[in-house]
Design a binder for these strands. Structure first.
Lengths: 192, 192
DNA sequence: CTCGATTGTCTAGCGATGCTAGGATCGAAT
DNA sequence: ATTCGATCCTAGCATCGCTAGACAATCGAG
């Protein structure tokens, strides 16, 4: 069985290489530059190899999205773990979220803007996506206020952060006032 | 001069036809379906004619975006004009905004998601875009609260609406709870 | 009224895209 | 050693945005 196991390991390694390379290329030159040819060339295989791992480009984007969602959940949890007080925890969450979006724009796009063929807000939603939402809910649920469903509150707060993140990166909002925007959002939305 | 004027009229008419057709096609089948060939076929001219009006596909998207921004500004003003009380005005604005995004998804994408080659938040920003922001500012500036810059407040409120609009349409948020989301945003963010 | 010149439009084609069919190659098992 | 199946690559399809160059219609000058 050792031969087969080795092959599977190699195959899994190549799949990781594809995802990592796609992500790297996207961060460097944008998703438009991530063509199947360029990607194939970078991993030093021919195009059709990509299609033995993924159904198509969409699924590759989806794989990057799932990886990114896992990291984002971890980043949010790490940023909020050591902070005292619900209000400050939420502020730390907001900064961590926007920081992640600013540092990994291509990954953020893969998660929230591009079509990666993923299901959202359903039963068959992949675990990393559910968990990313759960990470937000953990801190945001505390400050929903009386009579407001924590899930609904989390959705709204998240949507606000998402709006700030995307509009900032698209050049619709000048980036230098991010911090006062965060302050405003936290002060008004969070009930402590 | 009459001959030349007639030609200019015809040319302007054809340009409007291009924009209207692109918009229609985008709303019907999505922006991916708006190819230069299909667009040319629908207006019953050959492809190169498009390039005598616009530099390329980007500029066509930009033209749809400007048209849409004008309409959105009008929709927001119409929805808020006859409403008494700042709080209710803001709620009406939020509903009108989300309604516009839901009813004109392709146009909304052209304005805020796609690359239409337009400048934002700068001096050379096209007038319709500035005016759309101004329309938001008119109602939102009233409820910024003490010590908060109306422009900054408008940006944040707008970003929140944008987040709800995009996440809803992308399937990230279940659409049936839009109204309580609006209530929450208005109640918490607006200071009356 | 005729005849170059200009303007306008179209046909044809370029390079690049996502994706796939079919043959070559290589390793494992008999 | 030979067969056979898995693996990979070459080559190609349809489509994309965009453009060059040919052709026709129109205009102004004589």
């Amino acid at each position: 069985m050792s031969v087969q196991e080795r092959k599977e390991r190699e195959r899994a390694g190549r799949e990781r290489l594809i995802v990592a390379t796609a992500r790297e290329l996207a961060e460097q030159q944008g998703w438009d530059a991530v063509t199947t040819r360029r990607l194939a060339e970078r991993i030093e295989y021919s195009q059709p190899v990509l299609y033995s791992h993924f159904r198509g480009k969409r699924e590759i984007i989806g794989a990057v999205a799932l990886q990114g969602a896992t990291e984002m959940a971890a980043a949010v949890r790490a940023a909020t773990a050591a902070v005292d007080g619900p209000r400050e925890r939420v502020a730390a969450l907001a900064r961590a979220y926007l920081d992640f979006a600013a540092r990994n724009p291509a990954v953020y796009d893969a998660i929230f803007q591009l079509d990666g063929g993923l299901a959202y807000a359903q039963e068959d939603t992949p675990e990393p996506l559910k968990d990313a939402f759960a990470a937000l809910l953990e801190s945001l649920g505390e400050v929903a206020g009386n009579g407001v469903d924590p899930g609904l509150f989390t959705e709204v707060f998240w949507a606000s952060l998402h709006g700030v993140a995307t509009l900032t990166r698209a050049g619709r909002l000048p980036p230098e006032y991010t911090e006062p925007r965060v302050e405003l959002l936290v002060d008004r939305l969070a009930v402590v």
